[in-house]
């Protein structure tokens, strides 16, 4: 079973991986956006966004979706960071997973933007990568993990 970092620990992935070729994804399977749009039942669904797919199209169903994966085909394409923030700002509370090729040195930023699960290319890196989640303990900006900017918290 594939493994990933979720809520700060390495765990098994209970979802079935995305299958581009299937017309009818099974329950518990991650959908591409076009597949997901075809689903008659959005409750408990899982969808993966690619960098060119803005999350706004999901906004109406944020209370029903169980998992949103934002894929990073290349780690330098930072669109997913903004997508994550927008999803959280619009009230999404389900699992928000980073997938694809990102690097452990981005974990703090990803978490701050609202990701709570990280599925990395190289699973053998997962344990070591946990360390990078703790790179910073103080931040200037407001973000998903710290709703107040430092200037409202300084004592």
């Amino acid at each position: 079973m594939p493994r990933l970092i979720k809520n700060g620990a390495v765990v098994d992935d209970s979802w079935t991986a995305l299958d581009h070729d299937t017309v009818a994804p099974q329950a518990g399977q991650i959908c591409t956006l076009p597949q997901w749009l075809q689903l008659s039942q959005k409750k408990g669904s899982a969808v993966q966004l690619e960098p060119a797919e803005e999350p706004d199209i999901l906004f109406e169903h944020l209370q029903e979706i169980a998992l949103i994966v934002i894929n990073f085909p290349v780690f330098t394409d930072g669109r997913g960071f903004s997508y994550a923030r927008r999803l959280r700002e619009h009230g999404y509370r389900g699992e928000l997973r980073a997938g694809g090729h990102f690097i452990r040195d981005q974990l703090t930023y990803l978490r701050r933007c609202g990701f709570d699960a990280f599925q990395m290319d190289d699973e053998s890196e997962l344990e070591a990568a946990l360390d990078s989640l703790g790179d910073f303990t103080e931040f200037y900006q407001a973000a998903d993990d710290q709703p107040l900017p430092l200037f409202r918290r300084r004592v």
């Binding site: 930023y109 933007c113 931040f139 200037y140």
Partner: peptide, 10 residues
Amino acid sequence: WSTLHPEFAF
């Protein structure tokens, strides 16, 4: 605000 801004590093 811009220092280590999580959203705008890439």
